[in-house]
Design a protein around this nucleic acid. Structure first.
Lengths: 259, 259
DNA sequence: CGGCGCCTTGACTTGCATCAAAAGTAGTGG
DNA sequence: CCACTACTTTTGATGCAAGTCAAGGCGCCG
């Protein structure tokens, strides 16, 4: 158990301040601009303080840093504070499948709840930061804080719903619908966070997008450029501007008259 | 809270016995042979009794009966007691996607947790029976029964992991791998329930299987018959015998020498 | 016994994967 | 600051797995 705790705890604390005042080194949940979409939703201020007490705020993750690996013993949930992450699983036969992209306010690590081991790898797509939430303490807290328990249920429920929609996308949509859908989903999620819904900076590679959507890199690239030629998108490498959200939306539904 | 109890309670009770002795009309959780794979895992006998008190045991569902509809207000979880069900969602553009098949001991309705409304339809594939678990009471109970809370977390976690594996299957597998995988999954689940892992009676149609796997009916039919020609399966309409589990397993991994 | 779903089988088409190569971008070190 | 290397993305040519279309068979139920 020690080896895991080691990597989970307070490394950054010493690094940053040289002292042990963990809580003051960073923004609290109460102050966090994400507390309306993150774990703390609807908690009162006393509850917020108690949650705060168990949460550790990490030093930054660099691009390519792993938060956890598939098979690691599950002890911690991670809330994205800034930046972005991807999670992926590797099947017995060695096939990698990206299972999600995570933005600030999203909670990662839930995949470990079922078996006590993470079933995914989680890796930073850019310079990022997370809050670490020790799961055992979260469980105990949620025993006395119904709202917190409900939030955990809700977050897990959202994950289930999201993945079910993903099944529809993967199972019965064309490449064009998949790519359009992916961009619209990013757009919506940015809007929910109060950010631009039309100017998107992709932190993942074309290969990541392709893998996530069950396509090849070439197909994703071609689709991006097809949308560009139709003036639906402007593309400059990783920077994408959605010129017309409505037309892009119309690409998602199967039947459309306009070619 | 009353309005919820109304729709959930004791309809069948009156039907069956004409009296109000709900609990005696059927097997309790403590007696149920599924209590090792269902909600009650690891509960002690006092806890079992308390869970029992909130669970309602339903009269039978006929094939085609809906347990709930997409959009219905979420108030109840359903544990399959006998028979089987499918759940499916309908996207804005009208595309149906089957999201799961449920066997005895499985819990349905979790998709409603996130938004307070079911995001799926749930329909019986054959003559079946369920236990109804009022969600609000389950929430309250799990506040005082840590093991129960953990079971709910675990069940939701399993659902997440299952769906992530499904994403791999849908995104990066051939039709043959999908069909083999589907049959092996049914086989394994039957084995977990102490039933034959080689003799499978399909309660869903070819169309259901095709939809679930992101294929067409024709492709599923062809694959079944290809496996039959190779002597991996024996097929008689809805009855399937897996003649060689190992060979079928070898069909799932992408690279294999045997053609 | 006749009609209606469900399933199978065959012929044909196509969307996307594959293969290949060029162009662009980023990181490194002299 | 530029040259070199390595990686990512784009673009084109070709092939194939699975979809579509169509017809026929089988089983079930009134």
């Amino acid at each position: 158990m020690l080896h895991c705790v080691m990597s989970d705890q307070s490394l950054d604390v010493v690094d940053i301040s040289g002292t042990h005042q963990r809580k003051r080194s960073s923004v609290t949940c109460a102050e966090c601009r994400l507390n309306k979409i993150c774990l703390p939703i609807a908690l009162n201020s006393e509850e917020l303080d108690r949650l705060d007490d168990v949460i550790q705020r990490d030093r930054a993750q660099e691009k390519g840093d792993y938060l956890y690996h598939m098979g690691d013993s599950f002890k911690t949930l991670y809330a994205v504070r800034s930046g972005s992450f991807k999670t992926y699983m590797v099947s017995e036969c060695g096939v990698e499948q990206i299972t999600g992209f995570y933005l600030p306010g999203d909670v990662m690590g839930i995949d470990g709840v079922a078996q006590g081991r993470y079933t995914n790898h989680a890796v930073a797509l850019e310079h990022s930061a997370v809050c670490r939430v020790p799961y055992s303490q979260l469980e105990s807290l949620s025993q006395v804080m119904p709202t917190l328990q409900r939030n955990i249920f809700r977050i897990m429920g959202c994950e289930i719903t999201r993945e079910q929609k993903m099944m529809t996308l993967l199972g019965s949509c064309t490449a064009e619908q998949k790519v359009a859908s992916f961009l619209l989903s990013l757009s919506r999620r940015k809007a929910e966070r109060g950010l631009s819904s039309t100017n998107i900076h992709l932190t993942m590679s074309r290969g990541d997008i392709a893998n996530y959507l069950g396509l090849t890199i070439e197909t994703v690239s071609r689709l991006f450029n097809r949308f560009k030629k139709r003036n639906i998108l402007s593309i400059d490498n990783k920077s994408i501007v959605i010129n017309d959200l409505d037309i892009l939306s119309s690409c998602v539904s199967p039947e459309r008259e306009a070619v």
